[in-house]
Structures are given as C-alpha cells and as structure tokens.
Design a protein around this nucleic acid. Structure first.
Lengths: 144, 144
DNA sequence: CACTTATTGCAGCCTGTTTGCAGTAACGTC
DNA sequence: GACGTTACTGCAAACAGGCTGCAATAAGTG
C-alpha cells in the first residue's frame, strides 16, 4: 500500500471542501510540490504544459488562488516583474539584490527578532514578507 | 532679492544638464515640493492639472523618471496598487498594514541596524526600501 | 446513468506604466 | 529679436501582469 503523499492529501482536502479534482489540478500540484520553489505563474504554466498541454494560464491563476485561500501557497513580489509563488510551508522573508536580482532568504527567527523590537517603538508588527526586502549581495558590494 | 528656493535650484540643475524648463515641469515640481509626500503618479497628475490643465500623465511619468535619474525622487511600492513617489531627501523604509493599508515609517537608523547584523550572516546589505515591509498596525492587531 | 454545479478555455477587460511619433516650444547663437 | 536645433509634450497605442464573464465540459453524487 503506497503511502499517501502530500499531493493526495491536498486533493482530499480539496474534495472535502466541495472542490473537484481534475487532471489540470493534479498536474499543477505535481509541479508545485516536486518542482523548484519560487516560480512565476507563467513558469508554472509552462512546466504544467510539458505534462499536460493546453492548460490555460488562467486555470493556473485560479487554482493558485484556491490554494492560497486554503493557506497552501503564498506569493511574493521579488521586484518589478511578476510575482513568484511558493508553498506556505516554506515561508520565509526574501532579500533581493537591487543590482543583479540574486535572491537570499532571511530566517524567520531574524524577522521575528526585528519585529519584536519594532512593535513597541512604531506600533507595527512585521509579518511574513509579501514583498522582498531590497538589498545588495556580496558580489555586487565588492564590485562597487 | 528673493532667496532662490529648492524649485529654482532644481530647475537650474535641469538646465545645466541640457534639460529644458517648461511650465509643466515647474508645476510638477511645485506639487512635489509643496504638496504632501507619498503621492501616486496619478495623484500628482491630478494636482498638477488643478494648476495647469492638460498636463498629460505621460509627461508626469517621464519627468518623474528624469528626477529619479537625477537622484531627486524615489518611488516605493506600498502594496499591490500603484507606486508612490517622494523626495529622496525624505528617504526611509516603509511598513504597510496588510489589513487596512495604514502606513508607518521605519527610521533609517533602525534599518541600518538590521542591515549591520544581517550582512555578516547571509551576505546581503539592506538598502533603502524600494518595497514596503508588510506588517500589521496596532489597530488591526487589537481587533484580531 | 442522470443530474448538479465546479472547473475549464477562451476572449476580452483591467490597471499601471511605457513607447513611437509628429507637433510645439525652450534655449543658444547670430 | 529672429533662427535653428532638439528636448519636451500630448496623443494613441502598446505593454505587462493579472482578472473576469461566459458557454462548454466534466467531476462527483445518488
């Protein structure tokens, strides 16, 4: 008996809330869970099409939205271009180099620490970053 | 002899680099320097039109770009909507409440402090925020 | 199998911003 | 002050990323 994997569990969750399981959704989930993190909707659509042609980008957007409502995926804006999506389980803040676009990850503990100090002073608690922090990476720093 | 103000100095700087001074540019600068901070290009255009009708939004965008090249203005993305522009002299990082859109300001010293600790650990230096930080304001925190 | 209704693909819309182009007008020179 | 050069303007149209309405399709239910 093959052990039920994340994809099957997700599909069950979808059915449980009255959603339906389609080939498109299965393919999208496969790419999401097995492919690399931080994909744009467009990338995702391309990769899905490799398995199942004719999946429309709109379908991808709509399903990502559903998954977001379920709390499974989140999107982040790394810069001026399209947003990238990743599993909420992999949630963390992002830094992006303003010069070269290189991306770094800020551990949740660090963000938490900042937030704890910030809240008493200016009355804002920082939450999971929905927008990346702007920065400069080592390579670009030494170049300059 | 009236003392030359920021606007005149800016206009001089424009002329010095081969740029031309027009009524439109004068009006845009007036709104930028005298109006409130954190305006969208659209807001700006509206306010400019109050003084000088028929100034096209394209002109506003183009001149903002020129001013950005000169290092005079910066734009920040507060969220999903349009970007807001402000004078570079007023530079600081921004926090925006994810719930209600309320905006807060993070002092430069605070950002600098974070950056100093972050750089040795993950190799990124934080720079002036081009994207706002996501957060929750006091009001929304207590409501929840 | 029949039925209900969620999901799909498509075309077309939307917002924010940029571009190409021909006309206008600012500035340096005579 | 007139003249020529060329930066700036307004307009229309394009652009990107994303979302919507709709009719057709097909997943789940009994």
């Amino acid at each position: 008996m093959p052990k039920p994997d994340v994809i099957d569990l997700t599909l069950d969750a979808i059915r449980e809330q009255g959603g339906r399981v389609t080939d498109q959704r299965r393919a999208i989930l496969r790419v999401l869970f097995e492919g690399s993190d931080h994909v744009t909707a467009d990338d995702l659509a391309e990769r899905v099409k490799a398995q199942l042609p004719d999946v429309h980008i709109t379908t991808v957007y709509r399903f990502l939205d559903t998954l977001a409502d379920m709390g499974l995926v989140t999107h982040v804006h790394l810069g001026h271009g399209p947003a990238v999506y990743h599993l909420s389980a992999h949630r963390h803040a992002h830094v992006v180099c303003e010069r070269c676009g290189e991306m770094g990850v800020i551990p949740n503990a660090v963000l938490q620490g900042w937030s704890d100090k910030l809240e008493p002073t200016i009355g804002f608690r920082l939450v999971d970053q929905h927008f990346a922090f702007a920065g400069l990476c080592q390579a670009c720093l030494t170049k300059a």
